[in-house]
Write a protein that binds this DNA or RNA. Structure first.
Lengths: 167, 167
DNA sequence: GCCGACATGTAATTTGTTACATGATTCC
DNA sequence: GGAATCATGTAACAAATTACATGTCGGC
């Protein structure tokens, strides 16, 4: 929230849409969560209502405290680095199904990663032009996803060959 | 739980230790969660208490229903594929801090990924010998982590060069 | 006899998801 | 006038984390 608001004021509704197009792949959140969080941030004085519009629209702006907190969070708080993947969890127990099924599963994962990769590439092309802040770091973030998808695809293809080499 | 129990009976305490050494990097869970879950699985008839030991130890074994459910979950339930990374979230808003700080952040991430990579390689060497089920798919799972860490390291190093090329 | 590991659970809180509920504008 | 979109919120539930609470056994 603070990050998005640091680029300029926005309403909950605006933030929700921004989320869907930018952050949802990095940090999913729901609409309810978002409105609740805005309330808490306002209580804590990290954002405040900068304007009110039609339909009860409340436009929030980040405060100086909020900006300070955002910067503190970026630099001083250690990322938690937890991977949680139910896909991998399944792979770990793939011995429970027949080898053909295991290979099919991995091959399906490779295909999914491939499709994901293509879609990221397409998004990258759309982003190509911009030079603003969000787009510079947005591209870096996107590139992470691209490399990840690539690694995932390669891994799944390799893994398929590792499963029960038939004799 | 079902996956681990499919390899043989174990107590909550055993499962907890197994978790810590094998699954914690793929699907973190806490001790409380684990005991609660065992209770629910027992109620659902997917596991049952196969033996009782000293100190109130209850050894659980997977039932036929449990095994069927495990296989169903592996093959029929689509993985959810959500990435949630607070590290990447920070990168997205890295424009909020000075370029030197941004580069330092990325370089730190590269170093962390490098260290993680080394530790995974070491685990891989320890695993090298075994030929059992868990170790075959365990190796495949580990290789995923290895490739991921590699990709992450490469990305962070590349990203560092992308940040505000000084003029 | 005591320390460490074994062993199981509950309670409180936080976080996140799904579903519901409601209404105001704008544009055609 | 009606549809799509704008706009905010609450309630119920599910999932997960943290902290607490308690007791037993084996080995030295």
């Amino acid at each position: 929230m603070l990050g998005l608001l640091s680029e300029g004021p926005a309403s909950g509704y605006d933030l929700m849409k921004l989320f869907d197009v930018s952050l949802s792949n990095v940090w999913p959140a729901t609409q309810s969560q978002l409105y609740a969080e805005l309330g808490k941030l306002a209580d804590a004085g990290l954002v405040d209502v900068s304007a009110e519009g039609p339909r009860g629209r409340k436009e929030y702006a980040i405060t100086d405290d909020g900006l300070a907190e955002l910067r503190r969070w970026i630099t001083d708080v250690e990322p938690t680095r937890v991977l949680r993947s139910d896909m991998l969890l399944r792979v770990f127990f793939l011995a429970q199904v027949a080898p053909e099924q295991a290979r099919a599963y991995l091959s399906h994962q490779a295909a999914l990663a491939g499709r994901h990769l293509e879609s990221l590439k397409r998004i990258g092309e759309l982003l190509e032009s911009g030079q603003d802040n969000l787009s510079v770091y947005g591209k870096i973030t996107l590139e992470y996803g691209r490399r990840l998808a690539e690694a995932q695809q390669g891994w799944a293809e390799w893994a398929e060959t590792e499963v029960a080499p038939d004799r």
